[in-house]
Nucleic acid binder design. Sequence first.
DNA 1: AATCGTACGGAGCGCTGTTCCGCTTAGACA
DNA 2: TGTCTAAGCGGAACAGCGCTCCGTACGATT
Lengths: 212, 212
Amino acid sequence: MTTTPQTPEPAPGGQAPRRARRADARRNEQALLDAAAAVFVTHGVDAPVRLVAAEAGVGMGTIYRHFPTRPELVVAVYRHQVEALAEAGPALLAEEADPGQALRRWAAGFVEFLVTKHGLAGVLGADEGAGALHRYFVERLAPVCDALLDAAVGPLESGRVPGVMLMRGIGNLSIGGRDGTGYDAARMADLLVSGVLARGSARDAEPGAEPG
Amino acid sequence: MTTTPQTPEPAPGGQAPRRARRADARRNEQALLDAAAAVFVTHGVDAPVRLVAAEAGVGMGTIYRHFPTRPELVVAVYRHQVEALAEAGPALLAEEADPGQALRRWAAGFVEFLVTKHGLAGVLGADEGAGALHRYFVERLAPVCDALLDAAVGPLESGRVPGVMLMRGIGNLSIGGRDGTGYDAARMADLLVSGVLARGSARDAEPGAEPG
DNA sequence: AATCGTACGGAGCGCTGTTCCGCTTAGACA
DNA sequence: TGTCTAAGCGGAACAGCGCTCCGTACGATT
């Protein structure tokens, strides 16, 4: 469970690879990712940064140079799982006759991912300030979700809900999906998708007014 | 905006009202409630406790004797609004021909309440540990929600979603409902209700399997 | 007026994420 | 192989959080 793939090495960003990174730097980054993955499993995604540093056997300075902010560490740890989710979208669309069913299954996978990583959903739903994580999830997954929605309920122009918004909704629904209470995030997400499927394109909206 | 109704005075809990509370105690509790209401408006529900204490002109000890934990203060501040929501349930059921529409409107009111009190939704969705708030919301509102669901999609026995769960779902959907992003909590909640209405009783479930 | 215990104030504790800076050492070059 | 430099490291320190503790003040009762 300790191996965390991560992009192999290069991709130096801009254009001129100034100089190769030092060996210990690369070693520490990997140690950090492994440690974080392990700690997140036992203590949840909200585990203190210090704990991850200790587990990896490095100092605070080191962890913050490699991952300038907590969410960025989280993103790095789960990057390959997000990738799998992104690739699952087109795949489901191809293998499933009913695109609505494809969307259903993709949503279920998204929930499963968020819910098993205890606390991840909360991080996703956090306000824009969190930055990196939110942005990465959205940029990588939103187009996939939009494609599924296009196939299932029609183009964005017809008034259907945007993919980002559905993702955010599912993310929110997944918060606390596996605490003792009987709350079933997967079921709620599926009901939300049902709603989207049922009145996907803009028709009779009339959301109602507040009572009190 | 400074008046916070709250139960007038008595309701001493158990059975024997040992002794009347001291005048300054009652005065401070009210000051605290007013201060909290004001601070929550300007700084959101996540405002530091110290800020509320300062605004009320009392010390930390005082605030924590009256409201042993942060969520309990929040509950007290919004208690009358919760009450209004509870009373709105039966009222909507009576005035609306279609019970589904009644449920829709009640849900809209719930979202409106959670979203305008910035950060309240997050507190509601917090894990069981939060205690008081979660419990109060559930105990007071869940029966109302269940009644609406009974009328709209049938009895619990037929396999429909429990009221508590729908409330929790709506609560989660309301998180971050009014930050800059285009996320529309009210719309998502309405879609969720649509899903509940559409496949309310247990029929073809098959939520789908995870892709990755 | 004297008493007594309820209620008060706020310093302080333990926890968090994050920053800062002096020291270490990998690795290029001679 | 020795030297030198800057990339990289460790961890003390900071600010901000919820919450506790305890000596002190004062409202109510006699």
